[in-house]
Simulated assay, not measured.
Amino acid sequence: MANNPVEYIQHHLQNLVLGVHPDKGLMFAHSAEDASEMGFWAIHVDTMLWSILTGVLFIKIFRKVAMNMTSGVPGTLQNIVEMSVEFVEGMVRDTFHGRSPLIAPLSLTIFVWVLLMNSLKWLPVDLLPSLAHMIGIPYFKIVPTADPNATFGLSIGVFFLIIYYSIKIKGPGGFAKELSFQPFNHWSLIPFNLFLEILGLLTKPLTLALRLFGNMYAGEVVFILIALLPFWAQWTLYVPWAIFHILVIPLQAFIFMVLSIVYLSSAHEDHNH
């Protein structure tokens, strides 16, 4: 798949892109140059595929447990699901100070979905890309959260909810007043307040997306570098790094969930009352 280490790293960091090439029409990108020429509307097929598959897996598991819930001695899967639900409910109860039936299930979805997408990092870095290459697929990245398109998709969804609840709870006038008179409650400082508040508002999805992407992408690069080592040396580094990700993978899902709850809690605060 690659003639040298540089090509190997570039190959593993390239997504499978489907888009409209200005000269070749609708096609899968066979090089980074093809992908760059397809522009904004190109789709990262591998990111979409694994995001959907992990989302469906989340729904299937939780639906199966809900349908077979027992009040007797629970099985291992029921225990895991119940612990996840109770953990997220506790975080929402302690962090979210408004009233909304959406926040708890949304937080559970974010936590488990991001956790499952991150967990794909434990698969050997060459396994699925090599199988894909054998059937003619040029690129095939596994971890959706190592792609900024996935992390920004999640964070922008949270951002729209922040705007929606800010307007719903405070009203259009109350939201505009909050932006205009904080942190300095004086009419002459409205332009300065608007600059600070709008900037702070826009950095929320930016920091959510980049924090998750940066950690997952950096971990992916390290796994790829380890795969370049001789076989006997790979396992001496791969196993400790994979064990380290036992902490990193759930931690990044937890941070994304908690920040989402905090931002949505702030959107529910009405400073006029």
Rank of each mutant, 00 (worst) to 15 (best):
G157W: 01
L128W: 12
I142Q: 09
P138K: 08
D147W: 04
H133R: 15
G157Q: 13
L127I: 05
P144S: 06
V125N: 01
K121R: 10
I137Y: 03
D147A: 08
L123C: 02
L154V: 15
G157C: 04
L154M: 12
L123T: 15
L131H: 11
G153M: 06
K121C: 05
S130I: 08
L131I: 14
V143H: 00
S130P: 05
Y139D: 02
A146Y: 05
P129S: 04
L154W: 08
I137C: 08
P144G: 05
I135M: 13
H133L: 11
F152Y: 14
P138G: 09
W122A: 12
S155V: 13
L123M: 14
K141E: 00
L127F: 13
L131A: 11
F152W: 13
F140V: 11
T151P: 05
H133C: 04
G153K: 13
K121I: 15
L127G: 01
S155P: 09
A132E: 01
A150L: 05
I156D: 02
Y139N: 06
S130W: 12
A146G: 06
L123G: 03
I156G: 04
G157P: 12
S130G: 04
L154R: 13
W122S: 06
Y139M: 04
L120F: 04
I142H: 03
I156E: 00
V158S: 07
M134V: 09
P124A: 00
A150Y: 08
V158K: 04
T145R: 05
S130T: 15
L123F: 12
I142G: 00
F152R: 13
F140K: 13
I142N: 03
A150W: 03
P144M: 08
M134D: 00
I156P: 10
P144T: 12
K121F: 11
G157S: 10
P138R: 11
P124Y: 08
V125P: 02
F140R: 14
K141Y: 01
T145I: 08
D126A: 03
L128A: 09
L123A: 09
P148M: 10
A132K: 13
I135N: 02
L131Y: 14
Y139K: 13
P129E: 00
M134W: 09
S155E: 02
D147N: 15
P148C: 02
D147Q: 06
P129F: 02
G153P: 03
P124T: 06
I142W: 09
P144W: 05
